[in-house]
Design a protein around this nucleic acid. Structure first.
Lengths: 207, 207
DNA sequence: GGCGATCGTTCCGTTTACGGAACGACACGG
DNA sequence: CCGTGTCGTTCCGTAAACGGAACGATCGCC
């Protein structure tokens, strides 16, 4: 994704309007009025109105105040960038974790009903962990896929080609956690590795 | 501004400074100078300097421009959500999903080394799905906890009291997905599916 | 119909985040 | 030693995000 150099995001405008829609949606899900949410969050109604309509470029502080009242993390509304369109699946990277022994990427996936997709093998040791929220999905190694319905969890080694295919006429919603074990090759310690999390393959612009 | 109502966050200040530190850390990992990153991101050096030092309250647009150049999603640097404190665990709600048949809450958890916690029973049908990123954790029903190490997944019915306890001297990092089946007033029309029971190694029959 | 309450938007003065330029500190090279 | 380059911070005028108040629209109630 991203490819570094050029700005991969549609300027701030498209972004802010997306965030605005998301916030409005969350607010309405909770049955809150704009005035009420503004009051609780301690921001002006003008601020919240402009934010929801995408006519303002909100401040981090403002976003925190609002999302906190909605009970979601800021990461939930900024979406982290619509990424990863497979041939069938639409995915959003929710979070990337860096741990000592492995990197994790957590995706929110939607498979349109009737779709199927074949993914190539990842590196050795990579595992995928998938939890289905809604719909019926057959996924896993191409030669032995597993079946999962709402609430089910399936996992497989993804160092072989693997497939995803919906069953039934429902869209499939799922979360997918991909685990990339840290390759124990070469450098043992090297520089003092900060625990800070890093997108594993972000980089680009090789230094 | 600033704490209009009671603010569950460590004020925006702590938040912005946290984001600033994260961004500085990401920048330095890439060997970029402040000037260079500012130039590439198309923001002023003053802006980036203030942002990294936590003396400014950056705009969404600014954050996008900067994080895009760092090759990470905005969610990676603001990755904080509502903080949940148990007696031992520190948790962050990453996402809450509302599906037709169930609600899901996805948490990022950190158990300090040596800690343990007992949680009361949830409603019937609620299941917990936990993936350990780092450390060693014993968790599950109080009378039959399961063991999980890095990369392991465990699940259990949480309609009975359940425990979490770290093993070893490492902090435990994990993701926890809690599934709340929608209560069909009356009878559970759809038979509640058993939790996955498929796991790289943890497994062991939740319940 | 009249009236009050609340909805979301718009107006407006104040505050502040913005980019550009100037600054001192440091590292090289001539 | 003294340019020359780049580092990150600070200063400053401008643009814009902020909260409060005023606005028209819509609902419920008498």
């Amino acid at each position: 994704m991203t490819s570094g150099a050029q700005n991969p995001y549609p300027t701030a405008d498209a972004g802010t309007s997306h965030v605005g829609r998301r916030i409005r949606s969350l607010r309405e899900e909770r049955g809150l009025s704009l005035s009420e949410l503004a009051r609780r969050a301690g921001v002006g109604k003008a601020t919240l109105s402009g934010l929801e309509n995408g006519t303002r470029n909100p401040t981090l502080e403002t976003l925190w105040a609002v999302t906190a009242q909605l009970g979601v993390g800021l990461g939930s509304v900024v979406g982290t960038g619509p990424v990863v369109h497979g041939t069938a699946v639409q995915g959003v990277l929710l979070q990337a974790f860096e741990e000592e022994g492995a990197a994790y990427e957590l995706y929110r996936l939607v498979f349109p009903a009737g779709s199927s997709q074949l993914s190539p093998a990842h590196h050795q040791g990579v595992t995928e962990h998938l939890t289905v929220f809604a719909g019926l999905l057959r996924a896993g190694p191409a030669d032995a896929p597993l079946l999962a319905g709402p609430g089910d969890y399936i996992t497989w080694q993804s160092d072989v080609p693997h497939t995803y295919a919906t069953l039934g006429d429902q869209d499939v919603h799922a979360s997918l956690l991909i685990r990339y074990p840290r390759l124990r090759s070469g450098l043992p310690d090297g520089p003092v590795r900060e625990p800070g999390e890093v997108s594993p393959r972000g980089d680009a612009s090789g230094r």
